[in-house]
Amino acid sequence: MAGKDFGFATKAGRQIDLDQLDTTLADKIALAVNSWRACISCGSCTATCPAGVKFHLQLPTLNRAFQLGTDFCLELPTLNRAFQLGTASCLELATLKSCLLCGKCQLVCPRGIPTRYVSIQIMQKFKSNSHVAKGIPSV
């Protein structure tokens, strides 16, 4: 039903509802690189990442989004859902394509996370979902 227009409307929420979260994707990646969960968001990787300095690549933020299972850029309830729908245009995810695979992140990570391998894992997961692959480089 087309509602009456009062000249204003309710706003969509910004709150991440953890009750709705679906962490299937994070779990898949953790199977390959379990240490990924040990990230402490120290930001060492972003600070010296060529793609972080020039573009938007921030591994810790991407990590948080995966751990919570939310595609907060798309306002979609879960990242997994975004993945299934083929709408993986999440800012953070899309920025992975700017990764040069230089390996600096891995060199500086105090938790010893093979971050470069994490990048590859995420890209591969998304690539295997063919209709999502648009824009994500093959590796």
Binding site: F6, G7, F8, A9, T10, K11, G13
Partner: peptide, 14 residues
């Protein structure tokens, strides 16, 4: 201001 009322009504809706 009318344009702002979306903020107000969103809270009541919660």
């Amino acid at each position: 201001v009318q344009e702002n009322r979306g903020y107000s009504i969103s809270q009541s809706k919660i």
